[in-house]
C-alpha cells in the first residue's frame, strides 16, 4: 500500500504540465518552409539561437519544405495563435503568396521582423560556354524559351532573379524548378541546367573555388567574394537594369497578427538582441549578407515598396495572372 502510494505521488509529480500563463514557457517552433541547409534555414537558425538566449526558451527549427515555401507558411498561418509557432521566410516568396493563389491574406496580416538582404548571383556550370553575363543574355535572346534556369521554385529568390534576367534580355528562359536552393545548385554543378539565378550566399564558396562560374550579381555594386575575386554587378554590362535592382531575398521572421502586445514586445527585444550578436554578424559577413534589421513598423513600410516591386515583376512577366492591385500592391 505504502509503496503504491509512493509510486503514485512520484508519478503525479512528473505529470504536472506547464500551465502558467507566462510566455514562453515551453519550446517554440520556428518553421522554415524550405529544406535544411539553405539560406533561409541557416539565417533562421542563427537568429533563433540568438533569440532563445534572451527568451530563455529553446527554439526548434522545423523544416517543412514544398510548394515554393508556401506549404510551411500556410501551416503557420493556420496554426493556433499562441505565440509558439513562428515562421522564417524570404519576403519575396512570402509577400507574393496571394498572387499565386495560396491565400487571401497579405503581408499586412502578419507581424514581420526583417533581418538580412542577400543579392541574387547568376552562375553557370564550370564547363559552360558562357563566360560573361553578356554571353548568357545574348544566348537567351537568340534562343527564346530554350535556355534553362534552375531555381528553388515558383516565387523563390531564384525565380525573381530569373525574371530580372528575362526583362533585361527581352526574351524568355525555360524555368526548371527544384525542391530548394540546394538541389538547384547541385543541378548546376552537374550541368543539368544552363544557369542558376539563386542567391549568391548559396554558392559563394563554389564560385571562389571555381566549381561554378559566377557571371554577375543583382546588387547595385560589385561584390568582392575573396581577395582578388570580384563578382561584377549586372549594371556594368546592362545599365538599364537599374530599375529592377537591388534584387535579392530579404529574410525575416514573422507571425500572424493578433498576439497580445506584451508577447510581441518580448519578441521585439529578443530579435533586436539576436541581430546584434557577433556570431550572427560573422555568419552574415561570411555569406555576403547585408544585415538590415527592421522592427515591425519599419518592416511594413519597407515591404510596401519591396512587395510592390516583386509583385509587379511577376505580373508583368506573366508568371501570375492576378492583378497585384487587387491586394493593394502599388507599382513602385
Amino acid at each position: 500500500m505504502k509503496r503504491t502510494l509512493a509510486l503514485l505521488s512520484l508519478a503525479v509529480s512528473f505529470a504536472c504540465p506547464a500551465w502558467s500563463a507566462d510566455w514562453p514557457n515551453r519550446n517554440i517552433n520556428l518553421t522554415v518552409p524550405y529544406g535544411a541547409g539553405g539560406t533561409t534555414d541557416l539565417t533562421a537558425r542563427s537568429i533563433a539561437s540568438g533569440m532563445s538566449k534572451v527568451l530563455g526558451a529553446t527554439i526548434n527549427v522545423v523544416n517543412t519544405p514544398g510548394a515554393g515555401g508556401s506549404a510551411g507558411s500556410l501551416n503557420v498561418q493556420n496554426a493556433k495563435l499562441d505565440g509558439y509557432s513562428l515562421l522564417a521566410n524570404g519576403l519575396l516568396a512570402f509577400t507574393t503568396m496571394p498572387l499565386n493563389g495560396y491565400t487571401e491574406k497579405t503581408f499586412r496580416d502578419w507581424d514581420i521582423w526583417i533581418a538580412t538582404y542577400a543579392p541574387n548571383g547568376i552562375i553557370v556550370p564550370a564547363n559552360s560556354p558562357y563566360n560573361t553575363i553578356t554571353d548568357l543574355i545574348n544566348a537567351i535572346k537568340a534562343k527564346p524559351g530554350q535556355i534553362t534556369a534552375g531555381t528553388a521554385g515558383i516565387g523563390s529568390g531564384g525565380h525573381f532573379g530569373a525574371e530580372v534576367i528575362k526583362a533585361v534580355a527581352g526574351a524568355d528562359y525555360k524555368h526548371i524548378t527544384y525542391q530548394g536552393g540546394g538541389p538547384a545548385v547541385t543541378a548546376t554543378l552537374s550541368g543539368e541546367v544552363d544557369f542558376c539565378p539563386q542567391l549568391l550566399a548559396e554558392y559563394k564558396d563554389l564560385i571562389i573555388s571555381g566549381k561554378v562560374k559566377g557571371l554577375a550579381s543583382l546588387s547595385e555594386s560589385d561584390i568582392e567574394l575573396a581577395p582578388g575575386k570580384v563578382l561584377p554587378s549586372i549594371l556594368k554590362s546592362f545599365p538599364d537594369a537599374k530599375k529592377y535592382l537591388p534584387m535579392g531575398e530579404v529574410t525575416g521572421i514573422m507571425i500572424p497578427k493578433g498576439l497580445p502586445e506584451d508577447i510581441l514586445k518580448k519578441i521585439d527585444a529578443a530579435f533586436e538582441s539576436a541581430v546584434k550578436e557577433k556570431e550572427f554578424l560573422d555568419f552574415a559577413a561570411v555569406r555576403s549578407f547585408t544585415v538590415m534589421p527592421k522592427g515591425r513598423a519599419e518592416s511594413q513600410a519597407f515591404l510596401e515598396t519591396f512587395a510592390g516591386r516583386a509583385a509587379y515583376i511577376l505580373y508583368d512577366a506573366g508568371a501570375v495572372t492576378v492583378d497585384p492591385a487587387k491586394y493593394g500592391f502599388k507599382r513602385p
Binding site: 503504491t4 509510486l7 512520484l10 508519478a11 512528473f14 505529470a15 519550446n27
Partner: peptide, 21 residues
C-alpha cells in the same frame, strides 16, 4: 501500476529530457 509507471516514464522522457511538448 504498469499503466501509471509507463505513462509517467513517457512524460518524463519526452518533456524533461527531450524537452518536447
Amino acid at each position: 501500476l504498469t499503466a501509471l509507471v509507463s505513462a509517467s516514464l513517457v512524460v518524463f522522457l519526452f518533456e524533461k529530457i527531450f524537452k518536447t511538448v
